[in-house]
Amino acid sequence: MKNEINRPPMAVILAAGVGSRLSPLTDNCAKSLLSVGGSVILERMIRNCLSCGLSQFVLVLGHRADEIKQFVDKTFRGIRVTYVINDRYRETNTGYSLMLASKAVGTAEFAKLDADVVFNVKILRQLADDRRADVLCIDQNIVLEDEEVKVITDDQMQVLEVGKSVDPKRALGEYIGIEKISAKTGPLLFAELAQMMQSPARYQDYYEDAYARLLAKGAVFHVLDITGTNWTEIDDADDFAAANAMFGTPVTTVSRGQQRAIDEAAAKPIRA
């Protein structure tokens, strides 16, 4: 029962960006509404969340917000979703977008997902079941360069540093844009973001910068190593092609009990 208590009920999805590096694919379509493996990216993400018991959603939108709202309302009739609009999406970044979710989230525990990440549902299932309070998903099987958000940990998998400027030689792996934030840390995170965004000079900061500031103040974050499980962030045409190669079939909503039965059946030896 302890796992059930710790499982976050809410998913915060950041989907405000333009996706200009995917042009011309995004010239007339929001990035999150592109199709990968027969399923729209955002549909795949929401279905994965529903499969893991996350039943409430906060979507932070900006570019082509009306189109995304119409798609979600039509595809997922009856789900509990709050739309938050970032009117400054062209001049701000993920830190500003996440800050705007503060009122909708309140003091609830939540999973935060970047809308341009396509992932195997097993990642989210492991994260939801993790007993630890504040957890970032990382992949060790990545060539770390300047673009990646890198994470340094101690021997107990506790985060020491996080960010793009982290020394790749000391980093354990790449943070993949999926994490779990506890009810205790959430208000501290939103307060940190609000303080950062008082200055327009920080509008382009990433939310990971707030995590780094919280770490410096003594906050504790851990990592969940998802190395070997399929996922990809979609930034450009090469990423989009890789995602379609990795995820070749449409997603379906599978309950936890159904997934357990599938896994048990797959584990049984085949009799001649």
Rank of each mutant, 00 (worst) to 15 (best):
I41N: 00
A11Y: 00
G62A: 07
C29Y: 10
N6K: 13
H63P: 03
C49V: 05
L54N: 04
Q56F: 10
V58W: 03
S51T: 04
G53Q: 09
P24T: 11
K69G: 01
P9S: 12
E43M: 01
C52E: 05
M45H: 02
A65L: 03
E67S: 10
I13Y: 00
L61Y: 00
S20T: 15
N28Q: 15
P9N: 10
V36M: 04
V40R: 09
V18P: 09
G37R: 01
A16T: 12
I46A: 03
G19I: 05
D27P: 10
N48P: 04
S51C: 15
D66H: 09
C49A: 00
F57K: 00
G62S: 01
K69A: 10
N28G: 09
M45A: 10
I5S: 09
S32C: 15
R21G: 02
G62N: 03
V12L: 12
V12I: 13
Q56D: 13
R21M: 15
N28T: 14
R7E: 13
S51W: 12
L25R: 13
A11I: 04
I46T: 08
R64H: 07
S35V: 08
L33F: 04
A11S: 14
G62V: 11
C49S: 07
M10A: 06
I13V: 12
N48F: 05
A16I: 12
C29W: 12
L54P: 03
K31Y: 01
L25Y: 12
S23V: 11
E43W: 03
I13T: 04
V58M: 04
D66P: 02
P24Q: 06
K2V: 15
V60G: 06
V12S: 01
N6L: 15
S20Y: 10
G17T: 06
S35I: 13
V58D: 11
